[in-house]
Nucleic acid binder design. Sequence first.
RNA 1: UCGACAGUAGCUCAAUGGUGGAGCAUUCGGCUGUUAACCGAAGGGUUGUAGGUUCAAGUCCUACCUGUCGAGCCA
Length: 446
Amino acid sequence: MEQRVYINKIADFVDKEVTIQGWLYNIRSSGKLMFPELRDGTGVIQGVVVKSAVPEKVWEDFSKLTQESSVCVTGTVTKHPKKEGVYELQVNNIEIIHIAEPYPITPKEHGVEFLMDRRHLWMRSPKQTAILRVRNEIIQAIRDFMYNNGFILFDTPIFTPNACEGTTTLFSTDYFDLGKAYLSQSGQLYAEAGALALGKVYTLGPTFRAENSMTRRHITEFWMMEPEMAYYDIDDDMNLIEDFLEYVVQRVLEKSKSDLEILGRDISKLQNVKKPFPRITYAEAVDILNKKDVPLIRKTENGEEHIRPFPWGEDFGAPHEEAIVEDYDKPVMVHRWPAEAKSFYMKRDPNDPKIALGVDVLAPEGFGEIIGGSQREDDFEELESRIKEHNLPLEEFQWYLDLRRFGSVPHSGFGLGIERMVSWICNLEHIREAIPFARRPNRIRP
RNA sequence: UCGACAGUAGCUCAAUGGUGGAGCAUUCGGCUGUUAACCGAAGGGUUGUAGGUUCAAGUCCUACCUGUCGAGCCA
């Protein structure tokens, strides 16, 4: 009796007759033999159609198929005659559901623009489905880690009346009689309210940045996971980051092995991601830059100016991050930053008011910043003057200041960019492949 | 936003300033173990747009459009 099964479970059905409900990915023929490759979303399996062994109609039906035609194929599962651990389907019947029109995406090479214009079809290909399954596993691992460590899921609003951080540009929209609303660039300020209510919370959802950044690491709509913890200082924060990253990476290694294989990922690099991670201060990072003679490059009217030694107080660019990370095979935590380079809500170091208690986590292999976190300013006066210094509208922050009026406590948190995490774990060339439909400054379709 | 590079068949790419080609895809034919299968044949073009230089422009010049990569900013 035939049974419906999915391709990723096919090994359990050797010598049994099964029906695969899927699509034709590719087909090769050799006279009286055909080798259709079937995909069903969980994997790909090669069918074998022998002309002398199937009814004439089955042979004719297979001859008619175009790439991405949808079919239900029945056959007996066998081991591949040459390849260990690979299975085939000895076909004996087919039901055609739909003959596809000529499919634009062939198993050959295509350009980026062509593929992104057809993202809704491109995502059917083996590499893209593998990435999307790994993304699923990463998010599931994050949720499990948070749940098992006592964090409460705390959903923050996407419509907001003001900037969480005054620095970056926001998308705006009309909001009835209340004027402008802005799409959230971070759920952090709301998560802080949640932490003072529930102890440990996290948000996981889309965030928006109207930055005209055309790099392989930026999209305008990205997903962020932001935990926020009451009674955590910056060192507690870094301890959590270590536990968290180790868990997620090792969990994905365990559960998504076959997908990482499809992606050609060097697994040994990810196996290294075990705590402790290197922790270096910003000042130590600057020392590294100067030892390696990496200058700050500033653009001027007549070209570029190379400044040596790297001046204290400047933020790092891509070449600096690379130079800092290249000696390590684990994520690197850079902490205690110049306050001026960082956001208004970060707490100052009690030992040095020029230092903010922030931490950036740089992924290995040049994938750049994946996490940014900090201990938050919990003193009312300090925070209020910081808001004023940054020219932020004080009225809009009164509710936020309330958190320092009513039972203020030391608290910390961080934000993880989901797509950057996916890019790193899957070793992607570009972040646009880390999310089903990437939004960039020059693309909103499909 | 700035910088570099690119735009030729459905796709990926060739073409010294001098007759625009190939592979894949499509259609047809062949092949009993193929792996981006292979072999044979056919159809497929206003060379991104607008100007200019030249006897002659896909090729050189100018502007614009679109894209890619990099920088800044950030997760």
